[in-house]
Design a protein around this nucleic acid. Structure first.
Lengths: 289, 289
DNA sequence: TGAGGTCTCTGACTAAAGTCAGAGAATGGA
DNA sequence: TCCATTCTCTGACTTTAGTCAGAGACCTCA
């Protein structure tokens, strides 16, 4: 498998290399072209450009000077903080960027054109799979303190979604508790899933002496679904429950969360009679560990 | 579709970029690392290195000088032709190359590791599809004179394969004719399929006044099968037949060539009674255009 | 054997890419 | 209001990457 991935990397790298050639060739150095591209139609702050392209501040400055000299870019202090400056594309800069855009369209088209309709469909489908799974492989799951901003953010998003999707609305204060101290070792654990430093999911476990651990706050951001992140969170929480000595894991859920329910079932959870009186729950599940 | 290909290019490019970082980071410039890699365990002639990496001869020379100074490479005149020189890795060079190899293994592994077994399988499968189809899109089909070396090469390979696979062996002199002048416009046409300048398939058509054109010499190299090249060759030959005024296309084939037969059927050919007495044929097909 | 061609190397360049150490303006908080 | 900090810019570099025009060794074929 590793070999197959490697040959993939080689082929695709060579092939997509054509794209950088496309970025080149307008008698503009690659660095300038990348910067022009990254500034985008709405402009961008220099610090954002630096971190996104991972360039030295002096270097960015010099590149911008050169683009300014060509009349493609203007740089002006930002309104909020006059230390930082914002680069914007001029009319000519926008036109130049459109040329780059057309070029990368051309590259994409050159991939598709020689193929038959069914080959095209297969190619695009497989590309989507590769992309999604490569992204999924980038997701990292880490324990986070329940009071950490990332924890608040994801749990907040979870509540908001529950409120939006369940027919009765949702009030976090009314449900079963999951206070910070209950989700902090050794009483429990809160995990946050990150995609490139951005929190995109969470899940928690709350231990009970002599009883199954409770899984709580399982949530994955919309645009990160279908990557198996929920399943990974769940598996890690179960492992944590097992480490704490629990013989099983339990959870309750709202009937509106159909994908979650399907995922629990396929992960080996079986529906059981209500084991608590959480007012927003319709289904109770349990799994032996 | 173009958009999907573009986002694929962006994601994958970023992700595989890690690989070049892997090649870098050993405090060795990328050019040297690429060269070291390309020389390979068995050594390589400088001209081969130059064409494969597309580098200036002076530049390669200088890079080799630097690798030599580090004790990683030796360069000596080739035995056959003492103008050309062959670069070989020393013990240290081989070790260094193994480091690079391990690094690109690590990158590949980092793609796979966070995924579940079924995700891995899907990823590798999709990678294979992408790779094959991107390669397929690189194939170019061009008319070639029947006496051109590439034509001789592919037709020779076709005869060799026929001889190897058919139980009776095959003697090109005994069969129905397809002399150079019969496959040259306006009497006919010979197409050769190229993958990166290397001929990997052929196919010809021979016109007959007032009768269906004959498809001859259809062949695709083993390692290029499954890319739809045969189908493309056939389609172009049919188009050529139609241009010449033919109302149909005919062909005969040996029963050993099962994939070819399946391809003809799925391309709309129907089996008909023998329309000639080609001694090596078992099936005769025809299609209306 | 000699003419024309092939192959690699050296010298002399240029352009791009990137690094580093301040300088100077602006900001936020004590 | 002052001090530490943040942000961008400039000047002065270094390293890579790549190009071009010969020179010289070697090969092939007439």
């Amino acid at each position: 498998m590793v070999d197959q991935v490697r040959t993939f990397n080689r082929t695709v790298m060579q092939r997509i290399g054509a794209l950088s050639d496309g970025f080149l060739g307008r008698r503009r150095p690659m660095g300038e072209a990348r910067l022009l591209w990254e500034i985008g139609p709405d402009g961008a702050e220099l610090r954002a450009l630096r971190t996104r392209l991972d360039l030295d501040s002096g270097y960015v400055s010099r590149l911008l000077r050169s683009l300014e000299a060509d009349g493609l870019v203007t740089v002006a202090p930002s309104d909020a903080d006059r230390r930082t400056r914002t680069a914007r594309l001029t009319r000519a800069g926008l036109a130049e960027r459109r040329v780059l855009e057309r070029r990368s369209d051309d590259v994409a088209r050159s991939f598709l054109e020689p193929l038959s309709a069914s080959q095209r469909e297969r190619l695009v489908g497989a590309m989507d799979t590769v992309q999604r799974l490569l992204t999924a492989a980038l997701v990292e799951i880490r324990p986070v303190d329940p009071t950490h901003p990332d924890a608040r953010l994801t749990i907040g998003a979870y509540f908001a979604e529950l409120n939006r999707r369940s027919d009765s609305g949702f009030d976090p204060a009314a449900g079963m508790s999951a206070e910070p101290h209950e989700l902090r070792p050794p009483a429990g654990l809160l995990l946050v899933a990150y995609l490139r430093a951005e929190p995109i999911g969470c899940g928690a476990v709350k231990h009970h002496d002599g009883a199954p651990s409770e899984i709580k706050r399982m949530w994955v951001a919309d645009r990160a679904r279908g990557l198996g992140i929920g399943r990974r969170l769940l598996a890690e929480l179960e492992a944590e429950a097992a480490r704490s000595g629990a013989r099983g894991a339990r959870l309750e859920t709202n009937r509106a969360l159909t994908e979650a329910i399907a995922m629990y079932r396929s992960a080996g959870y079986v529906e059981v009679p209500a084991f608590n009186d959480e007012p927003f729950a319709h289904h109770w599940f349990e799994k032996r560990l």
